[in-house]
Write a protein that binds this DNA or RNA. Structure first.
Lengths: 253, 253
DNA sequence: CGGCGCCTTGAGAGTAATCAACGATAGTGG
DNA sequence: CCACTATCGTTGATTACTCTCAAGGCGCCG
């Protein structure tokens, strides 16, 4: 209960996220609340969807960090995208068929499963939700492009700065950032597998950033001590994360 | 006129491409024929859509190579995706707003412009086309993921092999491959900007592949002399390029 | 013929990977 | 409660892949 707040709804990151993309009515919110009820709790490093699987449900991450990744035959693993609280996963699987990558948790996660059937009905009945979901797909595509640029032509320290900025900006959309500080339950190995760097080099790059007094990363928490400097290093501009051009107060401090 | 052929329609790569993704009727084909009539001719290295633009039309590439790319302030350029004959570009711009990257030609191109309005009507009236376009978007997303893996954890030679396999497979979908040979009107600099390698290293990597008798690349044409060996190096499996699981004869020889 | 774009080659520097070992930390079980 | 173990982080030394800089060659077009 309680009146509507302008502050992000910490209770349900999915609603919080989608509200930033479309004007949701009370009926929309109630529907979202319903599909994200009865969540699962999962441990860290658990596969949600295996490679080449044909999943029957979509997933909603409500808490914790998950990722899309691909494992090479050499054993190397590449993280392709992060799935953060409020993110939906594999809405389009029914039309695409088999998975071409895996999805797994990084930290412990609270996750809801939604049958594709239910999702289809939801979007049919709630055009605002459909629009918001469409925009999340565009944001996801833009993020993938950003990663290509990151991996293709930035140095280690620039890549790391960019990833930190991205995560901070995305978590801000679901109300998980305070004073440029956010949860980051990742190991340095995880970071390396995201950034295309070895764990050793991640460690040294991190020390570099720390040594310059730019970031703090400990206790599963990341803090940008000089956010603007970090963004400058990364050439980060967050516009790609909020397609639809609703300039809805996401001003960068 | 002329009866239906099972061979890819060389006349219109767009139709050829979409036929591989959905069952198109005669009315669908006629509609596609219409929107791709009256094409433009463009020289190489011309911008089709500038970064931060708000384009009013979608684009169809009918001939030649174009790309999405991003230019860094340092001057470095990263190619994010290739737009090949039959590819549609920026179908979703009306909902996403401003571009977060640029689109430009690599070679000379024949391109059609389609007002978003016309495209919306087309998909409303032709559900098969709508479905096919949806699947192209999924293929594009899958390709982006593949690029992330490529840049994140493959060596120079593996990356190049993978790119060659991808281009060969995609051009095969529009009937531009014969005997593992396809047009490739790119400079070594272009390849470098796709692969995250310097032009010098591209040159040496190319010599390596040539020296092993695996590929031939001259006269704006690429030939895979030992296709299976190249695929092995790249760990390439093309399934991601044809979502929707219509196993429609795209067997890998 | 001259110029320009592209490819090629060589040398040297630098970034990041690998290998190996040690230290810190936290959770576990005795 | 403390020892134990596993995971994660840190450090050093060495290797190697890739970049940068520089110069020269080839072919095409004006």
């Amino acid at each position: 209960m309680g009146g509507a707040t302008s502050v992000p709804d910490k209770g349900n990151p999915l609603i919080c996220r989608l509200q930033g993309l479309a004007n949701l009515g009370l009926a929309d919110i109630a529907a979202l609340e319903e599909i994200s009820s009865s969540p699962w709790m999962l441990g860290p490093h658990v596969d949600l969807i295996g490679d080449e699987a044909v999943p029957k449900d979509a997933l909603i991450v409500l808490e914790g960090f998950a990722c899309r990744y691909k494992q090479r035959r050499t054993g190397a693993r590449q993280i392709i995208a992060y799935l953060l609280p409020g993110d939906l996963c594999d809405v389009d699987v029914p039309s695409s068929g088999r998975m071409d990558h895996a999805v797994g948790t990084l930290s412990a996660c609270r996750v809801a499963r939604v049958p594709h059937q239910a999702l289809a009905e939801l979007t049919a009945r709630h055009p605002n939700i459909a629009r918001a979901l469409h925009l999340t797909k565009l944001a996801e595509a833009a993020t993938a492009r950003e990663w290509i640029v990151n991996l293709g032509c930035r140095s280690g320290i620039e890549r790391m700065a960019h990833l930190f900025c991205e995560l901070m900006a995305r978590l801000e959309l679901v109300g998980l950032v305070q004073d440029s500080s956010c949860p980051l339950p990742l190991t340095q190995v995880d970071l390396g597998e995201s950034l295309g760097l070895s764990n050793v080099h991640v460690n040294r790059t991190l020390q570099d950033l720390r040594g310059q007094g730019l970031v703090e990363f400990k206790g599963r928490r990341l803090t940008l001590l000089k956010p603007q400097r970090v963004r400058d290093i990364a050439e980060f501009s967050p516009a790609y994360l909020w397609p639809g051009a609703r300039t809805n107060g996401h001003a960068i401090p």
